[in-house]
């Protein structure tokens, strides 16, 4: 609490003392800018933690800014800001492929190195994509886990962030494909948006459970949705009868996983994603990372393999009761 207040006061002070501070570019340090889809989201906050670690190790300036809500138009404005600031490299998690690519091409034309992470832009708008897991990989992991918990049969429902978010649509599409192809006796009964609000996810989950008495599983594919759904199941007294899984961070779900409400949470190591992204961006700006390389050594994390222009982070990870205490992000 006091920390927050100090931080706030500092910020106001910084603003007031603006005339006395020197320019960003005064040092000879490299400047890398990291753009999340939405910056308040715990997912990207933990990417940022990893990115900051890499920035400290490499001794560079790191910028981290993005829209508060996932908003494609604002992402473009921020990238254009950075272009006029003349940063050295930009790393982007694209809300919308085509939308962001115009701004990224402009950045490349001005000699700024561009990579993407988390969600790709068009291939000609960036040099590399740090691929944490393909939409397919995520969707398959989720659907396979759901089928395992339901023994391959029964009804389930999805809680998504919004009806318009691009990544949500992509995951949902691959979940449905996997469902049709491998689990014919499972049935997706409803998809409900929660607007990235935990409270709304809880209300939606409550209504879903009463409307579908045979529901066996709730799958939340946005991070605020998982604790919301879990709380609803807990309050309905249906722990064990209705299982909860989803995409989310260990810290937000720890208590529900331990209580046995949430069966498992799927995610890759987001801190590593941020770390790897910054390492790759710096290597690219310094000319150490080039197209055609097969391996990339990222500081303390060691070696990662490159397939084409994708730097691969690894497979999605499944957090459950047994391993969740080993992670803190």
């Amino acid at each position: 609490m006091t920390l927050r207040i100090t931080r706030f006061t500092l910020l106001i002070l910084c603003f007031a003392l603006q005339p006395f501070s020197i320019g960003l570019a005064a040092g000879e340090k490299l400047m890398v800018a990291l753009l999340p889809k939405s910056k308040g989201n715990a997912y990207f906050l933990s990417c940022k933690a990893g990115a900051e670690k890499a920035a400290r190790e490499l001794g560079i300036n790191l910028l981290f800014d993005g829209p508060v809500d996932s908003n494609a138009a604002k992402q473009n404005e921020i990238v254009e800001n950075w272009i006029t600031l003349g940063v050295d490299a930009i790393a982007v998690a694209a809300e919308n492929k085509e939308g962001i690519s115009t701004a990224l091409r402009k950045a490349r034309k001005q000699g700024i190195q561009v990579i993407t992470y988390d969600a790709d832009a068009l291939a000609d708008a960036r040099s590399f994509f740090v691929n944490q897991a393909t939409p397919q990989g995520i969707a398959h992991a989720l659907m396979d886990e759901a089928a395992r918990l339901c023994q391959g049969t029964g009804e389930f429902a999805i809680i998504s962030a919004s009806l318009t978010a691009a990544n949500q649509r992509e995951w949902q599409k691959h979940i449905e494909l996997r469902l049709a192809e491998k689990y014919p006796s499972m049935k997706l009964v409803a998809v409900r948006p929660c607007d990235d609000l935990k409270d709304k996810a809880q209300s939606e989950a409550t209504a879903l459970m009463s409307a579908h008495p045979n529901l066996k599983l709730l799958m939340a594919i946005c991070s605020p949705g998982v604790p919301g759904a879990a709380e609803a199941v807990k309050q309905a007294g249906k722990v064990g009868r209705i299982k909860v899984i989803g995409l989310g961070l260990p810290n937000e779900n720890r208590r529900y996983v331990k209580e046995g409400v949430t069966e498992s949470v799927i995610l890759w190591n987001t801190e590593d994603l941020g770390y790897l992204t910054v390492q790759a961006a710096v290597a690219l700006a310094e000319g150490k990372l080039k197209v055609g390389m097969k391996r990339f050594v990222a500081g303390k994390l060691g070696e990662f393999s490159i397939e084409g222009d994708n730097i691969l982070l690894g497979k999605p990870f499944l957090f459950n009761k047994d391993n969740i205490d080993r992670f803190d992000f």
Binding site: G40, D195, D199, P227
Partner: peptide, 16 residues
């Protein structure tokens, strides 16, 4: 009244 209904508070709650 809203806070006591769940063990976590999301700063976005109340949006809209």
């Amino acid at each position: 009244m809203n806070v006591v209904q769940s063990p976590q508070v999301q700063p976005l709650s109340g949006l809209g």
